[in-house]
Amino acid sequence: MFFRLTNIFKGILSLFIKDLERKNPEALLELEQENLRKQIANFNQGLAAHAGLAERLMSQVRKQEAEERELHARTTAHLRAGNKSAAAQNALRLQNLGRELEENRRQLAQAEETYQNLTKAREVAVAAARSKIEALKGAINDLRMKTAMAEMNEMAAGMVSSIGGSGDTLNRLHEMVEEERTQAAGRARMARDSMDMSEVNLKEAEMDALADQALADFAAKEGISLPGQEATPEAPANRSMGGSNPQSESQ
């Protein structure tokens, strides 16, 4: 019974986690990227250790090659000098050193080949993982964009349905606005018709008459004839002034 309950709990937890992963693919992708970085770091540590082993083998090979050259020279010198015992001992050491050197060279070649293969495998694996990650990033972005577009389309469809369903309300609102506008226009017309314009017209005529009179006075003073008005001749001077009366002359 406990085992069955444990399986049910694991199943529920697995569904919950799977749902979280579906809702947050970016977080899962970031976790995989972090795991990839850790794997690369661990692989690089192992590769560095292998490279160190190859360097030690290379150093040992170089040391043995130098020792081989020295033993070869000693053996040759003792043999030419007639020191057969010393030459034999050096020849034996040279023979053993040759076998060790050959083995170390073989191990060095294998280590170098393994290092190159590991380096190539790392580059290929990292390139493949990065390519997959970039493809997943593009797929996630496309998913987000399509999800957003679907939500916008659903929202637009809901708005259309909502606006279509509120047609009666809009019609009633339009009727109320038209009724208020008509009443306001009627009140404005009634106020305009009830306004007493006689006094205003009288005042306007008075102002026009005063303006015409002022213009006529100015024109008369300046001796200018207004359009539609003939020039008024000046009154003749008094004949009695500066002239003689004919009757008086006859007397």
Rank of each mutant, 00 (worst) to 15 (best):
N96E: 12
A125R: 10
L101S: 04
V124I: 15
E100G: 03
A128V: 09
R99S: 13
A128W: 15
Q89N: 15
L108A: 02
E103D: 12
Q95P: 01
Q89E: 14
E113S: 08
A129E: 06
A87N: 01
R130V: 15
R105H: 10
Q89W: 12
S85L: 15
L94R: 11
A128N: 14
R105Y: 09
Q110F: 02
S131E: 14
R122I: 03
A109K: 05
L92Y: 07
K120G: 03
A125L: 07
Q95K: 13
A86L: 10
A109L: 00
S85C: 11
R130N: 12
E123Y: 13
Q107T: 09
T114P: 01
E102M: 05
K120W: 13
L92K: 12
R99Q: 14
L94F: 00
T119C: 02
K120T: 15
A121R: 02
A91T: 09
R130T: 14
Q95G: 01
L118M: 08
N96F: 10
E100R: 11
E102K: 07
S131L: 15
A111Q: 02
S85H: 15
Y115Q: 00
E112D: 09
T114R: 09
R130M: 13
A88Y: 08
A128H: 15
L101H: 00
A109Y: 01
A88V: 13
T114I: 04
Y115C: 03
E113T: 12
L97S: 00
V126Q: 06
Q107F: 07
T119N: 08
R105T: 04
S131G: 13
T119M: 03
L101A: 05
Q116Y: 04
A128M: 14
N90S: 14
L94E: 05
L97M: 06
V124R: 11
N104T: 13
T114V: 05
N104C: 04
R130G: 07
S85N: 14
A129R: 08
A86N: 07
E103Y: 03
A88H: 09
V124G: 00
V126L: 11
Y115V: 09
L97Y: 04
Q89F: 13
R122H: 06
K120M: 12
S85Q: 14
E113P: 01
L92P: 09
R106Y: 00
Q89A: 14
L108Y: 00
R106I: 06
L94N: 07
S131Y: 15
A129W: 03
R105I: 02
Q110G: 10
Q107G: 05
R105Q: 10
N104M: 12
T114K: 09
A129T: 03
E123V: 15
E112N: 06
V126N: 09
K120F: 09
N96T: 13
A127C: 07
L108N: 00
G98I: 09
V126T: 06
A88W: 10
E102Q: 11
Y115G: 05
T114Q: 03
T119E: 05
A91V: 02
L108W: 02
Q89V: 04
V124P: 01
E102C: 08
Q110A: 00
A109Q: 10
K120Y: 11
R99Y: 14
A125V: 04
Y115T: 00
A127K: 12
A88C: 06
V124N: 07
A127L: 13
G98D: 06
L108D: 10
Q110S: 08
R105M: 04
V124D: 14
A127T: 13
A121N: 11
E113H: 10
A87W: 07
A109V: 05
E112Q: 07
N96C: 04
E102A: 07
G98N: 00
E100V: 11
